[in-house]
Lab assay of single mutants.
Amino acid sequence: MLDDRARMEAAKKEKVEQILAEFQLQEEDLKKVMRRMQKEMDRGLRLETHEEASVKMLPTYVRSTPEGSEVGDFLSLDLGGTNFRVMLVKVGEGEEGQWSVKTKHQMYSIPEDAMTGTAEMLFDYISECISDFLDKHQMKHKKLPLGFTFSFPVRHEDIDKGILLNWTKGFKASGAEGNNVVGLLRDAIKRRGDFEMDVVAMVNDTVATMISCYYEDHQCEVGMIVGTGCNACYMEEMQNVELVEGDEGRMCVNTEWGAFGDSGELDEFLLEYDRLVDESSANPGQQLYEKLIGGKYMGELVRLVLLRLVDENLLFHGEASEQLRTRGAFETRFVSQVESDTGDRKQIYNILSTLGLRPSTTDCDIVRRACESVSTRAAHMCSAGLAGVINRMRESRSEDVMRITVGVDGSVYKLHPSFKERFHASVRRLTPSCEITFIESEEGSGRGAALVSAVACKKACMLGQ
């Protein structure tokens, strides 16, 4: 009897593995994704193909990295998701002549009506938060230079001027797309009239992360975010950046690689679950690469896999709870928690219980395998993109072996128990001629924006502006 049951459990697990095998990517698959990513990057950089390229390769006008001589107080704003952060950054000489960066910050959550109302409502709310922060720190009387981390696709015309191309991540505030974001912020500050600010720089969160990590390690020339969304930036040779005049030196390019796949480059790798996630998203047909990796989508992918296993009578005796059938019910943090389970399955059992399920031991094991399959594919897909960037940098610099540091931020990278190990191992397999160091950014977005502002202020002083 026991043997029969054991055989049935083994057969069930084997069927589960057959279904989950769809998520496995072979090294040849990853090399294919990497080569296609490089081709799209090239198209994004070139003037004649930029418009139709899915990977936009947006110039950021960040050319210099901090040298350690900029000092002063800077205000930093960070808008990239449902939370908005205001930070005071003091850049100065530390002990023994070292450079020191001290920060104080406060988080504000953005109400739904500000995210989806008008641009005026959104930026009025942001300036209200700045006003509140300055009151708390008794700094209303000071006109501070301000660095703005704005983590949406922007076409820069200068370091302090950028046109919002399109909202992502659930934002829909009308009247912002096609307009200068810094102008919208300046107008809102003017409307309030109770404080003055000098907006000197606007950067993407990947750029802010790279600059913040450069402060720790001067070989950091790539910034990457794996959180709600997924994106990367890197220092490109100016001669390859056709959208900006000049051939000397390097400029940081914001790849906006989340949109890779929007022209069909990933079609052969998309599964039924991916198509369902895409169809029910706020932007169907867009940001397809990001939807395979980002935390906004990972939990939902797992939920759809679990429903398939229920329908195949391989999980929960073929019956799903009402909660499990509800879109968004299986949160991405559950994926991390399930994979963090120590082996007694308590954590998995508790999560499934909150979803109205009474799982068996085998159910718990199957749910864990589903989570591992989805998150491992995410790590491997992400590795193909980064390997594409790094191999490109090595080739354009004609280096036999390139040493490089990548600064990384984002909740999936930082909080998932195995993502970074799987990701690092896969990147290294795909970049055999590179020695890569990964560092995690601390308060990256805010500190990085302030350091970019410090560079901009120093330049302005040198130019006598």
Rank of each mutant, 00 (worst) to 15 (best):
A449G: 10
D198V: 08
G388D: 03
R325S: 14
T362S: 09
A320L: 14
W167A: 05
H317R: 12
I159P: 02
D311A: 06
G229H: 01
E237Q: 12
F23S: 05
R358T: 12
H156L: 04
W167F: 01
E331H: 07
Q287G: 06
M251W: 03
T431S: 13
F152V: 03
S360T: 11
S174I: 02
F260V: 01
E221P: 03
T149A: 14
E322I: 09
E112W: 03
M238I: 06
S263R: 06
S383F: 03
M87I: 06
N204S: 10
Y289R: 01
W99H: 13
E196K: 10
G68I: 15
E443Y: 13
E242N: 06
F74S: 07
T405Q: 12
R36W: 09
E52V: 10
D247M: 01
L164R: 03
A282Y: 13
I225Q: 02
S109Q: 05
V71W: 15
K12R: 15
L164Q: 01
F419I: 02
T437D: 08
R394H: 11
L292F: 09
E112M: 11
D29R: 12
L88I: 01
R275L: 09
E27S: 12
V55P: 03
V203Q: 00
R369S: 15
Y413N: 03
G444Y: 05
L58R: 05
R368Y: 11
D262R: 10
A378D: 00
D160Q: 02
E96S: 12
N204R: 00
A378I: 04
V408I: 10
V455R: 15
F316V: 13
L45E: 01
Y349K: 13
L122S: 01
V408M: 11
T206H: 00
V62G: 02
D29A: 11
N231P: 05
A456E: 15
G444K: 04
K39I: 13
G294R: 04
V401G: 11
K136L: 07
F330R: 09
V199N: 01
M121C: 14
K32W: 06
Q239H: 14
T60L: 02
Q38E: 13
N204Q: 03
D365A: 13
L304Y: 15
V55E: 01
Y108L: 00
K39W: 13
D124E: 04
L451C: 01
T82D: 02
L266P: 10
L30Q: 07
E440Q: 10
T376W: 10
E177L: 08
V412K: 06
S100W: 08
G446Q: 06
K296C: 10
R7V: 13
C461W: 13
S151T: 00
P153Q: 03
T118R: 04
L386W: 12
S174N: 02
A456G: 15
G81D: 07
G343V: 11
D267H: 07
P145Y: 15
S109R: 06
T228P: 05
N204M: 00
H137E: 09
K32V: 10
K172R: 08
M8E: 10
T206W: 06
L271D: 04
H137I: 15
L77W: 01
